[in-house]
């Protein structure tokens, strides 16, 4: 799912070796867009933008991968929460998979667990399986509405946008002076 650079670098620190400073990820999207526009589809995948459902504009501060289907890259009103819960499930699963999770992984899981109802009582006695179950339970509540909104928006995006637009979003074009100049 689309994620913020900060989360990416936290996950990377928790489960993989090596650090990605989140500051380095911020300018990445623009570089990728430039690279795509000069030679479309020259690489198997690009890091691209998530699109807002209503205006199909690039969503602020989120990174996605170009090979994902469009409806995963669209952000509707419920999607931030849905993505958060899905991420919590993935993190909990990864936590179960690795042998001795370090403090960074502990911290990451707690950051999710703390904000999901019924996920954990405290940072010390967290159970990854419970976290995943709690996240799944809340996810059920939002999933259908969110999927409907995303599918509709994704259909629109595929119809209306060119290749570059589908990956990096369309920006609202202002006509003449309207909007931009007026305060």
């Amino acid at each position: 799912m689309p994620a913020a650079p900060k989360l990416l670098s936290a996950v990377n620190e928790a489960f993989f070796a090596g650090l990605i400073p989140s500051a380095r990820l911020t300018s990445l999207r623009r570089d990728e867009e430039r690279s795509f526009r000069s030679a479309p589809f020259a690489r198997p995948y690009y890091l691209c933008a998530a699109l807002t459902a209503e205006l199909l504009a690039p969503a602020r501060g989120l990174l996605a991968v170009s090979t994902w289907p469009m409806d995963r890259r669209v952000i509707g009103p419920l999607s931030p929460r849905v993505n958060y819960l899905s991420a919590a499930i993935r993190v909990a699963e990864s936590f179960l998979r690795i042998r001795s999770p370090g403090p960074a992984a502990q911290r990451l899981l707690w950051r999710f667990a703390a904000n999901i109802p019924g996920a954990a009582d405290g940072a010390r006695n967290m159970d990854p399986a419970t976290v995943a179950r709690a996240a799944q339970a809340e996810l059920q509540v939002h999933a259908d509405d969110d999927r409907a909104a995303r599918t509709a928006a994704a259909g629109r995006a595929r119809r209306q946008l060119d290749d570059a637009g589908q990956l990096f979003g369309s920006r609202l074009r202002l006509t003449g002076q309207a909007g931009a100049g007026r305060a």
Partner: peptide
């Protein structure tokens, strides 16, 4: 905070 990538107050 942004409308279609723009930050104009009017929009």
């Amino acid at each position: 905070e942004e409308v279609g990538g723009h930050r104009s107050q009017h929009l």
